[in-house]
Design a binder for these strands. Structure first.
Length: 160
DNA sequence: GCCAACGTTGGC
DNA sequence: GCCAACGTTGGC
C-alpha cells in the first residue's frame, strides 16, 4: 500500500502545532472530528506512515504550518464518551464506536506559515481541496503531485 | 462581525 | 424521502 497524503485542519486556539510539539514524543491523538466524511477517512483510509500537512484555520495567517506522520491508524475516539470533553456524543459507546481518531507525530514545524494566500496562487494547486471555497472538511486527501509542490515551497522553511 | 457554504435535524 | 430550518465552519 503506497503512502498517502492528507491535510488536517485545526484551530490553533484549540490545538496548535506548538501544542503538538510540547507533547511527549511530539505525538498526540487527533480527537474531536465529528463529521462522517472525515470520520470515514480516519477509520478506513489513513494508515501508519501516511503523512499530513498540519493546517491552522482561523489563524493569522491561516495556512500550513508543518508536517506530521501517522503513527497509529484509526481507533475509537474515546473523548466522545466523556461528557466533559469538548465534543461529547451520548450515542457513542464501547459497543457502538461512532467516531474515530488517529495518532500523529510531528515531523517538521515550518519556520513560517505557508499561507492560504500563497497556496491559492501557486501553479498546480488550483484544485487542492483546501483552496476551494466552502471546503470545510477538516480531514482532506492531498494528491501526491500537490504534496510535492507544497514540499518545494516548504524546503526553505524546514529547520530541523 | 459578516455571511457563503454546507452538514444535520426533524416535521410531514 | 423531501426539504426548510437551523447550526457550524472558516475565510475575509
Amino acid at each position: 500500500m503506497p503512502k498517502k497524503y492528507w491535510l488536517f485542519k485545526s484551530e490553533p486556539s484549540s490545538f496548535s502545532i506548538d501544542d503538538l510539539q510540547k507533547m511527549p514524543q511530539q505525538t498526540e491523538h487527533w480527537d474531536g472530528v465529528r463529521n462522517y466524511q472525515a470520520r470515514n477517512l480516519l477509520r478506513d483510509e489513513i494508515k501508519n506512515g501516511d503523512e499530513l500537512f498540519f493546517h491552522h484555520s482561523s489563524a493569522k495567517p491561516t495556512g500550513i504550518v508543518g508536517i506530521c506522520e501517522i503513527v497509529k491508524s484509526g481507533y475509537p475516539d474515546f473523548t466522545a464518551m466523556d461528557p466533559n470533553s469538548d465534543h461529547p456524543d451520548p450515542k457513542m459507546s464501547e459497543d457502538n464506536p461512532i467516531w474515530f481518531m488517529v495518532d500523529v507525530r510531528l515531523k517538521h514545524k515550518f519556520s513560517d506559515t505557508i499561507s492560504l494566500q500563497t497556496l491559492k496562487v501557486t501553479p498546480g494547486l488550483e484544485d487542492m481541496m483546501v483552496n476551494r471555497r466552502g471546503a470545510r472538511l477538516s480531514i482532506q486527501p492531498v494528491k501526491p503531485e500537490e504534496w510535492n509542490i507544497v514540499m518545494k515551497l516548504a524546503r526553505s522553511l524546514i529547520l530541523k
